[in-house]
Design a protein around this nucleic acid. Sequence first.
DNA 1: GAGTGGTCTAGACCACGAA
DNA 2: TCGTGGTCTAGACCACTCG
Lengths: 250, 250
Amino acid sequence: MPGASPLYRKVAADLRTAIAAGEYGSGERLPAEDELARRYGVSRGTVRQALAALRTDGLVTSRRGTRRVVLGGGTRLQSFAELRSFTRWARSLGEEPGGRVVALDPGDATDEEASQLQLDEGARVFRVRRVRTLSGTPVMVERTTYPEHIGELVAGMPLDTVSYSEQLELHGVLFTDAHHTIDLAVADADDAELLGCRAGEALLRERRRSTDPAGTPVEWSQDRYLPGTVAFTVHNSTATSALGRRLSER
Amino acid sequence: MPGASPLYRKVAADLRTAIAAGEYGSGERLPAEDELARRYGVSRGTVRQALAALRTDGLVTSRRGTRRVVLGGGTRLQSFAELRSFTRWARSLGEEPGGRVVALDPGDATDEEASQLQLDEGARVFRVRRVRTLSGTPVMVERTTYPEHIGELVAGMPLDTVSYSEQLELHGVLFTDAHHTIDLAVADADDAELLGCRAGEALLRERRRSTDPAGTPVEWSQDRYLPGTVAFTVHNSTATSALGRRLSER
DNA sequence: GAGTGGTCTAGACCACGAA
DNA sequence: TCGTGGTCTAGACCACTCG
């Protein structure tokens, strides 16, 4: 029946806009599932699929016995694509993303790189270091390690490529899962120079391991943000818990 | 049919232990859905519900056309309860959780508190400030604001109560959703004294707004961790995106 | 072309919340 | 008690991957 995108996505999108438009205000109750099913001319299962998406976004509650309630206040969450790509994220904010490649070198995988990318120790990898800017202001230093076959694609791109992500997707490299770790790091001399801060100053660090649909690691990245430029937001609930906390390893 | 917990949870639990036991190693393919359905004597829908849970935990991939693949390496994610409660989290690590109440006062809600807890400005709230320790070592300062009716419960508890969460649950206060924001904060004089660090030093900050099943805010908390003690981990994918990134407000 | 996961339907029963 | 969401079933068709 559906042409482009699944039915439940359309229902979800419609509900999202309805909520955004204030049709269902914060704290109000959503129509019952049966009612929505009738209204959209789909089965209850499809409605539930749509509502599950709103649920994990933290847009609505859900509990047995009562209609769903619209939750207010939450920060807008980002699509996976926006989250993974600095460029897309910046654009979605209306900011002008930029970047400058500081270094792009092949090398042999360190222990950590090998482990994160599931390569043999000493396997060939490509490392890219970039300063990322928002409307001209440096906000982040990005150190990414790619496995050889992907790194070669990156190395073949013009140095002023703004978004490697988008280019890699055009080459058929898909990113579908990512595991993030967020903590603090201390700016080293390089960071300090690139970001215009003092060495020794604390930075917000995000380490990220991305995998493709088959579960093969395609990227291992360490991003260091200047304090006060970004914050990370997470929604979770008893039903969906994507967040964790762990002791820092030393 | 089942008494205590839904069927799909049991299936999910079983698959989780099988994976943990190495029955399906990292990178290996899981049995097909139909096969699992037969094996567990449930319908395919139920198996899919179980697998969806493993999916959002980042334990397995999924894409059309191929069997699911077991993902390796990811840090173990925590249950919602472990995540929300410092006490439970510490216990799950085998550490001894501790805390010392520094201040417990009623007061009038500030603008931010009123907005986060969806109260009228100037409404009565309770504020608790605590130092949290892991096996005796201070790692975090917690500043929590409760709406009046919950704060009164907290105020009625013994000062050496280790876990307010657990006590509140016994009083029927349920936490089901939370929205977290993670960024940096600078230690003020109080933080410095309580944590034994220098004032002005950077701390890892987590701000958290928790709501009950009806969507009513029950807690607004700001936790500041000593650098190097904890890191936050998030898994997300094209299918489930609970993570966001946003510009810091100033 | 066979195998597999993604989507969708129709109907059933249960557990919980609120009146 | 009744409305509602949670769970479960059985079956169908499609879209994609891979040999």
